[in-house]
Design a protein around this nucleic acid. Structure first.
Length: 162
DNA sequence: GCCAACGTTGGC
DNA sequence: GCCAACGTTGGC
């Protein structure tokens, strides 16, 4: 039997809360922001080619004390060129990216649910159902990774969500 | 601050 | 196409 795949896919997206936290997203207009600044080709491919409106997102705080999952969000738009790549004054400026064939993309992300409990990295690591989760694998640095239904459910449970 | 791991660049 | 050097990420 073919494995069943629901329409929406699930992701984990990393943000440094000092730059942009889940609370910042919750407070944003429409609880939505354009996720810019991704400058890694694999993460770009997820954004540009695989994400769909309505996909679920675990909003993860990296380089934080402690790091961990801070909220539930969703993909709120199709991918669009990241305007910061063309902005010479912007730290993410990419002079190598042609305007007529942009290299870097982003999507709109909307906050959906606050968590009863923040889920620290240590709690993710302690959960056997998450042993294969990509973000927990040794050497992982990718800022966007796919999440399975099983992992999604386990993280929700750890966060105190139904 | 350290350092392992990884992605990218550039010489050849 | 190989691979060393370099820069970055991100947990600790």
């Amino acid at each position: 039997m073919k494995p069943k795949r629901s329409g929406r896919r699930l992701w984990l997206m990393k943000s440094e809360p000092e730059a942009f936290s889940f609370d910042d997203l919750w407070a944003a207009r429409g609880r939505t922001t354009f996720w810019d600044g991704v400058r890694n080709f694999r993460a770009r491919n997820f954004l540009r080619d695989e994400m769909r409106v309505g996909d679920g997102v675990l909003f993860y705080h990296s380089s934080a004390e402690p790091p961990g999952v801070a909220g539930i969000a969703e993909v709120a738009s199709a991918a669009a060129p990241d305007p910061t790549q063309f902005d010479a004054a912007h730290p993410h400026h990419d002079p190598e990216s042609p305007r007529d064939a942009p290299r870097w993309f982003g999507v709109e992300v909307r906050a959906v649910e606050r968590l009863p409990r923040f889920v620290p990295l240590a709690a993710l690591r302690a959960e056997t159902a998450l042993a294969q989760m990509q973000v927990l694998q040794r050497g992982n640095r990718l800022s966007i990774t796919p999440v399975t239904e099983k992992e999604w459910s386990a993280v929700r449970r750890l966060a105190g969500l139904p």
